[in-house]
Simulated assay, not measured.
Amino acid sequence: MSKMRASIKAIGGYVPETILNNSHLEKIIDTTDEWIISRTGIKERRILDDKSLATSDMASFAIKNLLEDGAIDPDEIECLILATSTPDYALTPTAALVCEKAGLKNAWGFDLNSACSGFLYGLSVGASFIESNRYKKILVVGADKMSSIVNYEDRNSCILFGDGAGAVLLENDESGSGIMQSIFKVDGKGSKFLSVPGGGSLLPTSEETVLAKKHYVQQDGKTVFKQAIKSMSATCKDIMAKADLSIDSIDWIIPHQANLRIIQAVSEEVGIDIKKFKINIEKYGNTTAATIPLCLWDFKNDFKKGDNIIITAFGAGFSWGSTYVKW
């Protein structure tokens, strides 16, 4: 009998209707459409501009899309793993709110914050729950309302981020397919290069932190850029070696969508044709924990049974890793 593994059985997604394109950014900061595209590959991003809605709403919309598209009874969902860096509240798990809003009456859930690597980490945790035979159906969701922590006066960061949510359903699979192996890494020294300094226990919210704009994303772009290429390339190579996969045997790479030039550099470093990389950054920007599930959602019809897929991510922390999935 084959080992029981967790397999992705359904995919859902949600992006807000409001589009923030480069032409609009030209009007509020010193930049140009040409510059943004040449440096990042981003043409537009989606913004959740309804102030009554938050990350939990986008996550619940993505889940409802998954359930409806897959004709799945919400009562069958047993657990929700929500990857997010933008929870609705500092205290009260956003996953609890999502379970309520998505009608997951029989599910428990929790938040997982590993920034842009969050969904990939959550996928591994969910897979472990399935492999242990404790649960049959688990939702792993990546959702972030990045517009809530972006300073739109900072031209180096505001051009990068957008809002969105993606969801996958994990179930057991004894056919030999599923989530096969993962390699994950962290390096706390990277926290000074990419973070939101204010609002935590180190720098609680105060008049000083607000005036100093400590509650917005702050990053050293050059350092993050170089480290992302190095880290994702290394774990892609490591997971291929660990799984005994050749370059020719890889069907698709699903990379975190932070910057098109990063993705192109990883392609060159790993030696896998850029045509095998699934890319949608031009229309969503960097949606942090949502980039990978949104990529899976956008391109789900391209994946065929037996395809060898590597998913790779890099984010604040620094946190990074790669996962091998046999579709």
Rank of each mutant, 00 (worst) to 15 (best):
Leu139Ala: 01
Gly271Ile: 05
Ser85Trp: 00
Asp57Trp: 11
Ile19Met: 00
Thr323Asp: 01
Glu282Thr: 05
Ser56Gln: 10
Ile254Val: 15
Ile272Lys: 00
Ala258Thr: 13
Ser195Gly: 00
Gly221Ala: 07
Asn151Val: 01
Leu170Asn: 05
Tyr135Lys: 15
Asp220His: 10
Asp50Tyr: 04
Leu82Trp: 04
Val125Asp: 03
Phe193Lys: 08
Asn301Lys: 13
Thr291His: 04
Ala115Cys: 10
Glu17Ile: 02
Ser267Thr: 05
Asp88Met: 00
Thr235Glu: 14
Cys79Gly: 01
Arg45Phe: 00
Leu160Glu: 07
Lys230Leu: 15
Ser249Glu: 15
Asp73Leu: 10
Ala228Asn: 10
Met180Lys: 15
Asp302Tyr: 11
Asn286Gly: 03
Lys214Ala: 14
Gly142Gln: 01
Gly118Lys: 07
Val140Asp: 07
Met180Trp: 11
Ser85Asn: 05
Asp238Asn: 13
Phe161Gly: 01
Ser319Gln: 14
Ile29Thr: 07
Ser60Leu: 08
Leu25Ala: 09
Leu104Pro: 05
Val196Cys: 12
Leu260His: 08
Thr32His: 09
Lys3Pro: 03
Ser246Gly: 15
Trp35Met: 11
Phe184Lys: 03
Lys101Asn: 08
Asp302Phe: 06
Trp108Lys: 12
Ala290Ile: 03
Ile247Thr: 09
Trp108Cys: 12
Leu245Asp: 10
Ile138Met: 04
Ser157Lys: 04
Glu171Cys: 14
Ser147Cys: 09
Leu25Gly: 01
Ser23Leu: 09
Phe299Ile: 01
Leu80Lys: 13
